[in-house]
């Protein structure tokens, strides 16, 4: 297991997990969200082959109501 920061909270995930694995685990669809790792936006077609590293800061962002 490795430790990452997910939306500013510590989370333990299986070593070798990709962004796709994480989204599956969290039960999130990739439409309508954006994933940032260490402030870099990850393109959706890279979710499969982007492997999360220990200490990564991951942000999962979506749209909300706002003015």
């Amino acid at each position: 297991m490795i430790s990452v920061k997910l939306n500013n909270k510590e989370k333990w995930i299986r070593e070798g997990s990709s962004v796709s694995d994480l989204l599956k685990f969290l039960d999130l669809k990739k439409d309508g969200i954006v994933v940032e790792i260490n402030l870099n936006i990850i393109k959706k077609d890279r979710y499969e082959d982007t492997v999360l590293q220990s200490g990564d800061s991951i942000e999962i962002i979506t749209f909300m109501g706002g003015g």
Binding site: L6, N7, L26, F63, M64
Partner: peptide, 8 residues
């Protein structure tokens, strides 16, 4: 619209 962290 606004952008926010997903409430996990």
């Amino acid at each position: 619209v606004a952008l926010r962290r997903v409430n996990l």
